[in-house]
């Protein structure tokens, strides 16, 4: 949950994981951090994200976006093809709903813009994946989230069907009320904005359109 704030520069306002049968889902709602991408630009960006893995091979991420009142739908699909014991080929594609009443040139511009922004958001995650290693016995605290439940779910794809245990597929729900975390983060962002105003800093990105978005 917390990586949305630190990696994707968004406040997660609602967060749930549900593992059931062969699916693993993350539901998330967020709004952008005003201290990270241009003036108040990102503060007016709202996302509702439903991301479901259908087994380890592919994920579909439905995204409802609202930027300054302009609402549209984006779908990101990514898939993993194993290429060795410790490598895989990652492919992703992004589709953006064609807004009604706009000419093709404008619609094309919007589609490219959104595809770029969500593509870069996805690559923020990929950057982490490229720098992580499997740890069989991680040192966890409860706030790290349902790591063992996810591994239990994942294991069903690495055993023969006869050896799949019910708990690997039983429904499990994990919900975090993000109110408390956001109180802390809002204060931190307010501090950042005050410091940036004092230093005449315009933030990490030029004012205007949000640069990056992510629902995962």
């Amino acid at each position: 949950m917390a990586h949305f704030y630190y990696v994707h520069f968004a406040f997660p306002t609602s967060f749930r994981n549900v593992f059931e049968d062969h699916t693993a889902t993350q539901f998330m709602e967020s709004k952008g951090r005003p201290d990270k991408a241009g003036g108040y630009g990102d503060a007016e960006l709202f996302l509702k994200s439903e991301a479901t893995y259908y087994g380890p091979a592919y994920m579909i991420n439905w995204l409802d976006t609202d930027y300054k009142g302009f609402r549209t739908e984006v779908v990101l699909v990514n898939c993993h093809v194993p290429t060795g014991p410790d490598s895989f080929l990652l492919q992703y594609g992004i589709t953006v709903k064609k807004p009604e009443g706009l000419d093709d040139k404008t619609a094309d511009y919007i589609a490219k813009k959104y595809a770029t922004m969500f593509g870069e958001g996805f690559l923020q995650d990929v950057h982490i994946w490229k720098n992580k290693v499997p740890v069989q016995n991680p040192l966890l605290c409860e706030e790290d989230g349902p790591v063992y439940q996810l591994r239990r779910w994942y294991e069903q794809f690495y055993v023969d069907v006869a050896d799949v245990r019910p708990e690997m597929r039983d429904r499990f729900e994990f919900e975090v009320d993000t109110t408390k975390a956001n109180e802390f983060w809002q204060a931190e962002v307010a501090d950042n904005l005050r410091r940036m105003a004092e230093e005449g800093d315009q933030g990490d990105a030029p004012a205007g359109d949000p640069q990056i978005m992510s629902g995962t």
Partner: peptide
Amino acid sequence: NSEHHTSVQWSS
């Protein structure tokens, strides 16, 4: 784990 967290384990 806290007032802000809930885990629910279902059975079939």
